[in-house]
Design a protein around this nucleic acid. Sequence first.
DNA 1: TGTGCATCTGAAATCGATTACATATACTCG
DNA 2: CGAGTATATGTAATCGATTTCAGATGCACA
Lengths: 351, 351
Amino acid sequence: MTGTADRPRKIARIKDVALVAGVSTATVSRALSNPTLLSEESRKAVFEAIRATGYRTNHAARNLRQQRAGAVLVLVPNLSNTFFSQILAGINLALEATDYSILIADSARPDASHSLENKRIANYFSDSRIDGMVALDGGLSTDGLEQFSPDIADKIVFACEWIPGEVFPSVRSDNVKGAQLAIRHLHALGHRRIAHITGPRGNVLTRARRDSIAPERQRLDLPAREGWIIHGDFSMRAGHRAAADICAMKERPTAVFCASDETALGLISGLHHHGIRVPEDISVVGFDDIELAEHYLPALTTIRQDRKALGRRAAELLLDRLRAQGPSAQGQVDTLDVELVVRGSTAAPKS
Amino acid sequence: MTGTADRPRKIARIKDVALVAGVSTATVSRALSNPTLLSEESRKAVFEAIRATGYRTNHAARNLRQQRAGAVLVLVPNLSNTFFSQILAGINLALEATDYSILIADSARPDASHSLENKRIANYFSDSRIDGMVALDGGLSTDGLEQFSPDIADKIVFACEWIPGEVFPSVRSDNVKGAQLAIRHLHALGHRRIAHITGPRGNVLTRARRDSIAPERQRLDLPAREGWIIHGDFSMRAGHRAAADICAMKERPTAVFCASDETALGLISGLHHHGIRVPEDISVVGFDDIELAEHYLPALTTIRQDRKALGRRAAELLLDRLRAQGPSAQGQVDTLDVELVVRGSTAAPKS
DNA sequence: TGTGCATCTGAAATCGATTACATATACTCG
DNA sequence: CGAGTATATGTAATCGATTTCAGATGCACA
């Protein structure tokens, strides 16, 4: 009692369908790719035969003939980092309706050099395993990418991060606005001494967020101290460590804008260990609005970026490029809006 | 000034290599797959030609000929859920050395029925897009999977979750031991009234963890109340909501064991809103040891499961099965150890 | 009636590798 | 020395689809 009907022992090929339908394989193929070409009669016969045989297209054969791979690579800086799952979800959303599969690879290979790493990526292309790539890692070295032939460069889109000065199109959040919103919010609450914990050195997001602060400080006539820019790396640990630095300052800031939510949470935790309360003693603003931000104690005031949309847009952009024939416009940048989400970790400074 | 050497305008095929090396395509192919078969002379010639032409194997062609797909599907219940990225990282670790690509798909399709969903998965196989699958979703309905032909059933491995009573091999954490460790730890601290917030109804992990509690309570002679098993769904929100329930109890528990860290964190946050302190008033234990657990306020006592190892083992198991010829042993279960990590969210009960 | 065009279909080439089979050569051993 | 084996290589079939090209049919119109 395993099933209602006997299953064919072999998987049906297009030849079998043609046989059953009493037509040629060409006709079956056309029925699938361009049904209007066929007469009503053969169309019916073919679809009936497909149903009867349980036929499904063999992708390897199709891809070989059509000189495509049918897959898109998503290059994630670090798969273990939970930050990227939302972006991945967005990419998946855009691609699951298409006949492109998603292939993932982790670009964080501590043992491999940059050039080796880039070779590995290029190989995905030349192996004809992928047709295009969504890169989440702005840290790819330009050297290696230059070695990509120009038509491969047309098949890469960056999401979230990007390579400064390069031609690859990218989708990113409005990091400048995010930083401005954070500073203005703190300023509006009455804060003047505002510190910043940065992301990792060399990262484009680090730079975009960090460098937006100085002009904004100037505009609002806020003081600046060198020590108020604290080096971090987006991690909780970085926030935790920064707490000690901040406690040791003689001119202690009353508010800290962190380049990531994780760092903000680590900071709050670290400050707590030092007996400093948030937001009573120090206000903290994050960046990202990860799910946890809402549930932390205190709930985190942060800059929300829509990671799912980021991934989705990037995938759509890539699809456009893959479907387009000739070389496409270079350096297209798609900037997604961010918004300030005010929660419990910010308040007016004391006194 | 675009590069140092001219790049061939067309991608080299095996035929080109053969031409350059002065051998047949068969010899080139053998040089790649089984070099010892060749004479020193031709081997050298071939490799030299490969280097000269920049030849890379076309995977579509190879896969077509070898009747394989060269990819493995990872079925994730919900890509947005950050829980799975570590497992994914583990799977990646095991597969990146092989010539299998990782393909991901999200099984959370609210619009689709189970049978449709299962069809979609089966299609990945019959499309010859994948050779095997690592499923992280124990919620796959058995109905659909029964429709898979037996040889497809040989190509599925479960990680983390599993389908009770089914033949698919699986890799899982020792959920029973985890629950026991949690209860014993609380008992050792002096707690007697211990509540539990479960995972989602119908989930195998929910059941495994929940059902391990009663025997342990009995063994330790701890009281049980019906209300002390609170229905949840692994989410923070569930923990948040449960806080209200707990506060309303006339026989309030002094400790809560949560089926997930996220729920535990939500609970702590919720309890805080009600003016109940952790661990002073109520102790809380989680399950998973997500990165955040260490950095929360208070740091979370929890059961650590090695998600990366989970993914890695599952992938290795799948590889074994794929490489094996005939049908393999059914129902193999690989249980990974868990450990108790004691942090700040548990303490002896007051008075 | 014949020409021209539109519509539909099939035969066969093609994508790029792997591999079964055949063959050629060298070597071993009775 | 000849049969038998091992070694090295090439020829051509093969995987399963798509697509070019050509042919067949039917119809409109001069």
